[in-house]
Design a protein around this nucleic acid. Sequence first.
DNA 1: GCCGTTACTTGACCTGCATCAAGACCAACC
DNA 2: GGTTGGTCTTGATGCAGGTCAAGTAACGGC
Lengths: 253, 253
Amino acid sequence: MTIPLRDTTTAPRRCTHDYQVSCSNCRLGTICLPLALEADAIDQLDEIIQRGRPLQKGDHLYRESDDFKSVFAVRSGSFKAYRTTDDGREQVTGFYFPGEVMGMDGIAKNSHACSAKALETAAVCEIPFNSLSDLSVKMPTLQRHFFQLMSREITEDQQLITLLSKNTAEERIAALMLSISSRNARRKLSATNFRLPMSRIDIGNYLGLTVETVSRVFSRLQKLEVLQVSNKEIEILDLKALQDVANVIIETE
Amino acid sequence: MTIPLRDTTTAPRRCTHDYQVSCSNCRLGTICLPLALEADAIDQLDEIIQRGRPLQKGDHLYRESDDFKSVFAVRSGSFKAYRTTDDGREQVTGFYFPGEVMGMDGIAKNSHACSAKALETAAVCEIPFNSLSDLSVKMPTLQRHFFQLMSREITEDQQLITLLSKNTAEERIAALMLSISSRNARRKLSATNFRLPMSRIDIGNYLGLTVETVSRVFSRLQKLEVLQVSNKEIEILDLKALQDVANVIIETE
DNA sequence: GCCGTTACTTGACCTGCATCAAGACCAACC
DNA sequence: GGTTGGTCTTGATGCAGGTCAAGTAACGGC
């Protein structure tokens, strides 16, 4: 069940989201990439985008092998995407924050390859893929836009691959903290103080570590006065030191 | 420097590649997904596709941060894609065989995120991305086709992520052997006897293992009479056992 | 053929993280 | 208040795979 995003007849020509993004004339969050869309394109997109129903913590946005119908831009809250391995375990493949787009894993087979679960109360924009395809055909800019979005997903996955295959536990955790920090900064939120929406279990799962290791690394980084950790509340005390620990350059775009 | 794939005026309406693929009316190798293209579409694609110059072992097809202009379908030979980490090490992100498409990592930033290097003498089809985009605008089927290709790349990367974060050395190697085997089968080559085009170093790098471990695992699997390994020549002696070792279902499509 | 170089294998040892185990904290609920 | 069930932390121990080292096989160049 979806309701229209807004009444387009009276709508102002600016971002209607709950957060501010750099592109001043975009209504789509980070679907908004360097390549800005013309006003005309935005109006047409508005026609097809719908506001998804609100989700509570633990609710699924979609599940593995569900029919693929739409991609989703996160409006508020956060999500984890995960796939279930053949022997029934879970592999977290990504965390999604406001302004990020999820669900593109479903295009290949017309059914979702991952499940997406809300980590807290959350809201999304639903973008029906068929409409998006049709519109892309009419609007080459949008098509390229969307290609870029998918390509970006590929490069991000490849960064995770590198992290998993080359880096130590401390480097992985530090890299994740830096990634969350920079995604916060992008949304004009604090880059140094934030609340982790996900559990230690999810962090460990995502980074290929056990909960115990995650916990130990947090303790160690706290002892070194790099981070201040109290349960889910994180404060980056020494950004430079954290970057040194990560030993990886996290893109700050 | 590229030369036209073939003289379209006299061309027969069938696959012109060095290998056979399942889709009988496609000239593009595995760009050919379940979604078959109409004859009309194929003719139009033919117009924009070019045969790339032949590559020798060690030659680069493109390098990290090269301008992104085209994607490439492998015609013969094989490639590895890799990215260089901030501290100068290499991370192999994939191997590409005939009929597979590479280079889509470049779309996001209009410059390649990976380098691609020939593992042996190789040939490719070059598909200029601008032409492809333009054509997709005219041909919705082609657009969807290409979206699927990219989405597939995402799911494959996610499988690798899972492999790296959850599986043992033996499981990883077994999974890679099964993957190569099934990709061979797809090209109507032997699924049990093949030559690995890549070095142990590359295998280790790709799977997040050291050369020594790769070597030891091969020896162990040989002792167990699962594989026959002589340098790069592999024979799968016991497919069922190999699948058990992998503990992961490898898609055979 | 010989030589130099690089790829591969095997062994001995060591370490980072997993595993096992116990306890602390926290929130929900009766 | 107490109980229950989850998440998080910390310690003790073990092992898969990394590191170091030495040797062998394969491949090119001359």
